[in-house]
């Protein structure tokens, strides 16, 4: 799968669910891309580097979200 196609799928997939939640597990993204985790990881990493996605971490678990989605940053006066 090409990067642009992955980007479109992820952005559409996450936007569709954005009313319900803003953070997603890695596996949710791999499912949207319909790829094996190892292959999906390369594309998802690129989406992070290009600042389409951003990481969220509780310390023990990591999740992904569209950059700026959710309200945590503003709640903590970080934006």
């Amino acid at each position: 799968m090409e990067y642009e196609e992955a980007k479109t799928r992820i952005v559409e997939g996450l936007t569709k669910k954005s009313k319900v939640k803003s953070k997603f597990y890695f596996n949710d993204l791999a499912k949207i891309l319909e790829l094996k985790p190892r292959i999906a990881k390369k594309l998802i990493n690129k989406l992070v580097i290009e600042e389409v996605l951003e990481y969220w971490s509780s310390g023990s678990t990591s999740m992904y979200g569209l950059k700026g989605a959710g309200k945590q940053a503003s709640a903590e006066h970080e934006d």
């Binding site: 969220w56 971490s57 990591s62 979200g65 940053a73």
Partner: peptide, 12 residues
Amino acid sequence: HGGIVGVFGYGG
């Protein structure tokens, strides 16, 4: 705990 804080390119 938890947040988007991190350094660029690192998820941990």
